[in-house]
Computed example of a mutant assay.
Amino acid sequence: MSENGRSRRIIVVDGVPLPDVLDETMIRGVVHGFYDEIRRDDILGPIFHDRIEPDKWPQHLAKMCDFWSATLLRTSRYEGRPLPPHLAIAGLGEAHFRRWLKLFRATVCRICPPEVAALFMERALRIAHSFRLAVAFSRGETTIGIDPIAEKDL
Rank of each mutant, 00 (worst) to 15 (best):
F48G: 07
P84M: 01
Y78R: 01
L22Y: 00
I38W: 15
D20N: 12
V12F: 00
I89Q: 07
M26E: 06
S2W: 10
P113L: 13
V135E: 04
H129A: 00
Y35S: 03
H129N: 05
E115D: 08
A150F: 13
M26Y: 02
R9E: 11
R99E: 11
I111N: 00
L72Y: 09
K102R: 14
L119D: 01
E94L: 14
R39Y: 15
R99G: 05
M121K: 00
A106S: 12
R110L: 06
E79S: 11
F34Q: 03
F104C: 03
S69Q: 10
P54Y: 13
L87H: 02
R40P: 05
V12I: 14
H49T: 15
G93Q: 04
D50P: 14
I38H: 10
A62C: 13
A106L: 13
V16R: 12
P85N: 03
R126S: 12
K102E: 12
I27T: 03
I38A: 08
V31L: 00
T25Q: 10
V13A: 04
R126H: 15
P84E: 02
G45M: 09
P114D: 07
A95Q: 12
E115V: 07
C112H: 01
R123L: 00
E141W: 04
L92E: 11
P148W: 08
L44V: 15
L83Y: 07
D153Y: 08
T25W: 15
V108E: 02
S2V: 10
P54T: 13
A118K: 00
C109I: 14
F34G: 02
D147S: 15
M26S: 03
E79I: 11
L61C: 08
E3G: 11
I52S: 05
I52F: 08
P17E: 00
L125S: 05
P85K: 01
C109Y: 12
G33H: 05
A128V: 04
H96W: 09
L87E: 03
I43K: 08
A124T: 02
A124H: 01
H49V: 12
N4R: 12
R99F: 06
R110A: 13
N4A: 10
L119H: 00
A124L: 01
I11P: 03
E141Y: 03
I146E: 06
A150Y: 11
F120P: 01
C109V: 10
I111M: 03
W68D: 03
T75I: 06
R39M: 10
A88D: 12
T75K: 03
D42S: 11
P84Q: 01
R105S: 11
M26T: 14
P113I: 13
R77P: 00
W68H: 05
E115Q: 12
D14K: 08
D147E: 10
R39Q: 14
